[in-house]
């Protein structure tokens, strides 16, 4: 399982990539693996807002449902519509093609409690 070093992670198994004032959000390799084959994703509208630690969408496999929690607050800059039609991308390329939303960061303080790759790996070891 991979956990790229240049990303930040949450306890709800999302990853965040910060570029300027834009944060890209997706779910981790570990999350997609525990869900199994993803069959459905629900994402917010472009232009809407998301709130830190609040659900912004849903992912579903055949036998499990999981809320997507936003790691940051801000407005939704871009939504990856492609994964709505082909949710399998979430299993195949969770950190690449299957990014979910890009958020205009409202408050950079939101980023301070996110985990590094190493911290996240330790976290999931303990959770198992």
């Amino acid at each position: 399982m991979e956990f790229p070093k240049d990303l930040k992670y949450t306890k709800e198994h999302e990853w965040v990539k910060v570029e300027g004032n834009i944060a890209t959000v997706g779910i981790t390799d570990y999350a997609q693996d525990s869900l199994g084959d993803v069959v459905y994703v629900e994402l917010p509208q472009e232009g809407g807002t998301v709130t830190k630690n609040e659900p912004f969408g849903v992912v579903e496999s055949v036998k499990a449902v999981s809320d997507l929690y936003s790691p940051i607050s801000g407005s939704v800059h871009e939504v990856n519509d492609a994964i709505i039609d082909s949710p399998e991308a979430i299993n195949e390329d969770p950190y690449g093609d299957a990014w979910m939303i890009r958020v205009e960061i409202g408050n950079t303080n939101d980023l301070s409690d996110l985990m590094s790759s190493d911290e996240y790996q330790k976290f999931i070891e303990e959770e198992k």
């Binding site: 579903e60 055949v62 036998k63 499990a64 449902v65």
Partner: peptide
Amino acid sequence: LTFSTREQHIR
């Protein structure tokens, strides 16, 4: 059976 994630045993 499909679309089971709508149902009580999962949700």
